[in-house]
Simulated scan of single mutants.
Amino acid sequence: MSDMDRLAGIALSDWQAQAREFDFRGHPLRYWEAGQGEPLLLIHGFPSGSWDWHYLWQPLAERYRVIACDMLGFGFSAKPRRHSYSLLEQADIQSGLLRQLGVSNYHILAHDYGDSVAQELLARDLEGERRIGSLCFLNGGLFPETHRPVLLQKLLMSPIGFLIGRRFSRARLAENFGKVFGPQTQPDEAELDAFWRMIETNNGPAVMHKLIHYMAERPVHRERWVGAMQRTPVPMRVIDGAVDPISGSHMVARYRELIAEPDTVLLEGIGHYPQIEAPERVLAGYLAFRDKLEQSS
């Protein structure tokens, strides 16, 4: 990966050392908090955790109060094997953490699985007290009709998903991430080690087939979630790695069809993990979005 696209990141061991713990319905979850200013909630994707934001963490903390947690079943949080995982519960977790931290109004930056959690939070925002100041999506399945799951995801969803999960390994992780990262921005060995460490902690492979059922939840909630995006007064931006085979430029094309006055930034040559592959470009795109909001307010 080019040094030009590389902010100074945080080693996974240092990231772990900064973790704090909160309890959600008897499950110990890990969260991180830094900085001051307007609260900014960072919501990670599948199958990793909040370390995904490590390149952006310090630059964002210089301007905002950044908050992130490893959701239930992810990263360094609890991964109960007999649990029925749900995107709606993950939204409850985010809301619960914000309440515990005394946060009422906040902004969101989300990725992948986290996009769906953010969509649920946006729908709740529209139905209740308006608390979300802005929402920025990175690559994710905002529309079920444009989501193109890779073979691993399809296998995890199948009747043999539990076996696929148990056999998941660092080698398979490297193989699958190699397909979704951009051709010139492939993860290096240290990054793959960190991703694998997040997944393997607390026997994560044993629950991957349970977590993957978020793919079945998306069509169920599509009308509510897409409807919320179409009706909300909350400013939104999409920053998207264009060559992502799962939710790249084809997803952005659909976003432009369905969302009025769409604000989108396509990162050419970048894949599914833009905050890892091109963190400086994501940071520039995000700060420009926020600066525009401040100028118009």
Score class of each variant (00 low, 15 high):
A61I: 10
A68W: 09
Y64N: 04
L56C: 01
F46C: 04
W57E: 02
G35C: 11
G49M: 07
E62Q: 15
D52W: 05
W32A: 07
D70W: 09
W32L: 04
F46E: 09
P39I: 03
S50K: 03
E33S: 14
E62Y: 10
W51P: 00
G45R: 07
I67K: 05
I67W: 05
D70Y: 12
L41Q: 05
L56Q: 08
E33I: 15
P47T: 13
P39T: 07
W51Q: 03
W53K: 01
G37H: 08
L60N: 10
R63A: 06
H44N: 13
L56I: 03
E38V: 03
S50W: 05
W57F: 00
E33T: 13
Q58E: 14
A68K: 01
I67D: 04
W51L: 14
I43E: 08
G45Q: 05
W53Y: 13
L40G: 05
G35P: 09
E62V: 00
D52S: 13
H54R: 15
Q36I: 11
A34H: 10
W32F: 14
V66M: 06
R63P: 01
P47D: 02
C69I: 05
V66N: 06
L60S: 02
S50G: 15
R63V: 09
F46H: 10
Y64F: 15
A61N: 11
S48T: 15
L41W: 03
S50Q: 15
D52V: 14
V66A: 01
L42T: 10
P47C: 02
G35F: 04
W53V: 00
S50H: 13
H44M: 09
A34Q: 14
A68Q: 09
D70T: 09
D52I: 11
Q36R: 13
L56V: 01
W53C: 08
G35E: 05
S48E: 13
F46W: 14
G49T: 00
D70Q: 05
W32E: 00
Y55K: 06
W53H: 08
S50N: 09
P47Y: 07
A68F: 10
W32Q: 04
E38C: 02
F46A: 11
A68M: 13
G45I: 01
V66H: 03
P47E: 06
D70S: 04
I67V: 15
Y55A: 08
A68I: 12
P39F: 08
Q36A: 14
G37P: 11
Q36T: 11
A61M: 11
I67T: 01
A61P: 12
W32R: 12
R65G: 08
F46N: 13
P59L: 10
Y64M: 04
W57H: 03
Q58T: 14
Q36Y: 02
Q36W: 02
L41D: 07
